[in-house]
Design a protein around this nucleic acid. Structure first.
Length: 588
RNA sequence: GCACCCAUAGCUCAGCUGGAUAGAGCGCUGCCCUCCGAAGGCAGAGGUCUGAGGUUCGAAUCCUCAUGGGUGCGCCA
């Protein structure tokens, strides 16, 4: 629906136009000075500059026109030309009535939805999820929800890292350890065992060992590179062994992501596009884009206008194997063929240059316009010391362990809050899980996507203030109010809302900003903007709750109005929390 | 070496295309449960927005320089 600021902007824009000014300058926003008025328009200053007029005088003219409208209780002129706007209670009530009856719950809905594919996984097979995987999973899932709510058709692809050097490292390492396995018999081409010779636990141990060995020993590295090239070349034993890696990892990853409430519609990987690589190389060749360079084949993507050197995209390595530039490009070929209008990558921002290379190459191939491929990068995650996060023991913190810590903390808190005589709720474990995950997700999502991430355990397990549990608490109190009133949300929502108390008007005004927040979060791919709004709503409700009796109100009309306001609040908050991937318990 | 990003309250961070008295959470001080859930509400203290210039009627925001951090720069992904 149209938000209150959009509605006001339209009104003020018309007066700007009537004065012969640019209507766009009539943009109204929530005031920086709520003590003066709830809304403001600073456009007169810019308009005066453009028209070379006196801003104060120009604003006087605008004020006179605005005064004539019945939407405003008060229009004041302040400073050099600020317009402070106080809409009438009737105006706000009218919009709130629209919000309540809006079939889309007041959320933003785009008119021309797109078919989008979102990449927000990228875990390597063989490596258990650790805290570093949290951001892409949480942000990606949330963006998917936000975009779907705005009308887009969005598909999430986990895009496993299953085709690069790490695969060769694993194969080479296992070959050293168990050379007698049938996978290493070059003469053997089929009939390999169905059961995997390694478990995920094995892989979790083998991977770092292999990776470390390659780092130290050039000979081991050469072995791994050779194995990678042979795997990609189709050596049957290697393929069979590799398939085991994928299978055992898939099962483990599905569980881990499931714990977080993160789902993928597509479980593809870099290897999925292997069959397309050759054709892609040929397409590049046909366009004359491939260049020989140091034994490798690359695509030049640098431009004169670049401020920095953009190295060419490495398409085929000198030993014939392919890197992630090639697979990512081939993936775009596949996605374009499948009819996706837009591709978004939720990947660590340090890979920005890589995406520039791939996107430019894809654009030259005519796969996509450049602005239809986005790298929604996120900040790198460091410890409190500003360096990559490590546990006290110096290892990586597994995501599953982090979740256990947060849930454990939530359970502790639930225990403390037990009132005397209360039975221990049978669903305490479930509630603790919801509270813990809410804390974890909100702590992550409420940071702007692009800024660096300081991993702070204390913040993740905090339940007071601007946290996930605060939002749940507000929701739970609303539910509690309906129970106390002996009604349901559906029934309560039918009441007519009349705003009288300041806390009621404030709450309504905040809620009327939903479409703005959702739209901004959508357009900028920034879930934290939606978090801000959710917090503002919960906060406005808490004030309203403290200031006004709801179920306890004697006046039946007022009571019904407040219950209806609470129902509208509950629905909006629930709608937002769903987009953030946060589940709301019945009690806590 | 070259390039990009960042520097805001004791701590962690917001601050949209330049606009009024720079916000929030935590922490700190003081109040509020005979009244719908105190994981809450109210009030308060706390800032030369790293420094120096510049553009502008107006700069945390734009430009230049300096200092201090971070990151990237073809055969890892």
């Amino acid at each position: 629906m149209i938000s209150i600021t959009q509605r006001l902007s339209a009104l003020v824009g018309e007066t700007f136009a009537a004065e012969g000014l640019d209507a766009a300058l009539g943009a109204v926003r929530v005031s920086d000075r709520p003590d003066l008025a709830p809304f403001q328009c600073n456009g007169a200053l810019a308009a005066a500059k453009a028209a070379k007029m006196n801003p104060r005088q120009l604003a006087e003219g605008l004020k006179a026109r605005l005064d004539a409208l019945d939407a405003f209780d008060d229009v004041t002129l302040a400073g050099p030309g600020f317009l402070n706007l106080t809409p009438t209670q009737t105006f706000v009530e009218g919009l709130l009535a629209e919000l309540v009856s809006d079939s889309h719950g007041g959320a933003y809905l785009r008119t021309d939805p797109e078919k989008v594919i979102l990449d927000y996984g990228g875990p390597n097979v063989a490596k258990p999820l650790h805290v570093g995987h949290l951001r892409s999973a949480i942000i990606g899932q949330s963006l998917k929800n936000i975009m779907r709510r705005a009308g887009d058709e969005v598909v999430g692809d986990i895009h496993l890292g299953d085709w690069g050097l790490q695969m060769g490292q694993l194969i080479a390492e296992i070959r050293r350890r168990q050379p007698d396995l049938p996978y290493f018999d070059e003469a053997k081409t089929d009939g390999f065992p169905e059961d995997s010779p390694v478990s995920v636990t094995d892989l979790a141990e083998i991977y770092p060992a292999a990776s470390g060995a390659c780092k130290e020993d050039p000979e081991r590295m050469a072995e791994a590179q050779q194995a990678t090239a042979e795997l990609q070349g189709g050596r049957p034993g290697y393929r069979a062994l590799w398939q085991h890696f994928i299978d055992v990892s898939h099962a483990a990853l599905e569980t881990d992501y499931g714990e977080l409430g993160v789902q993928f519609e597509l479980w593809r990987g870099e290897a999925s596009v292997d069959p397309l690589i050759q054709a892609t190389v040929e397409r590049l060749e046909a366009k004359g884009l491939l260049v020989e360079s140091d034994g490798a084949r690359v695509v030049e993507v640098a431009r004169d206008t670049d401020k920095k050197d953009i190295p060419p995209l490495l398409m085929v390595k000198s030993n014939g194997s392919v890197g992630y530039g090639s697979t990512d490009l081939a993936t775009l070929v596949e996605r374009a063929d499948e009819g996706f209008a837009r591709c978004i990558y939720v990947v660590d921002k340090r890979q920005a240059e890589h995406f520039v290379q791939v996107f430019r190459t894809a654009a030259r191939l005519g796969l996509y316009e450049e602005d239809h491929m986005e790298h929604a990068g996120f900040g790198t995650m460091n410890g409190k010391d500003g360096r990559p996060f490590k546990t006290r023991e110096g290892g990586v913190l597994r995501l599953a362990d982090l979740i256990d810590m947060v849930v454990g903390k939530a359970e502790e808190r639930l225990r403390e809050n037990d009132r005397d005589g209360d039975e221990v709720p049978a669903d305490r474990q479930d509630v603790a899980r919801m509270v813990g995950l809410a804390a974890l997700k909100f702590a992550d999502l409420s940071n702007p996507r692009t800024t660096d991430y300081i991993f702070d355990l204390d913040r993740f397990v905090a339940f007071e203030g601007k946290t996930g549990p605060y939002l749940l608490y507000a929701s739970v109190r609303m539910r509690s109010v309906f129970a106390k009133a002996g009604t349901t949300i559906e029934e309560a929502a039918k009441g007519t809302i009349q705003l009288t108390e300041p806390a009621e008007i404030d709450l309504a005004s905040v809620m009327l900003g939903y479409a703005d927040a959702h739209k901004a979060a959508y357009e900028r791919r920034m879930p934290h903007l939606l978090c801000e709004h959710a917090y503002a709503v919960a906060q406005a409700f808490s004030k309203f709750y403290a200031a006004c009796p709801i179920a306890n109100e004697d006046n039946i009309t007022v009571r019904s109005s407040r219950l209806a306001l609470s129902a509208a609040t509950f629905r909006q908050l629930a709608d937002i929390l769903a987009q953030l991937g946060i589940a709301v318990p019945d009690h806590m």
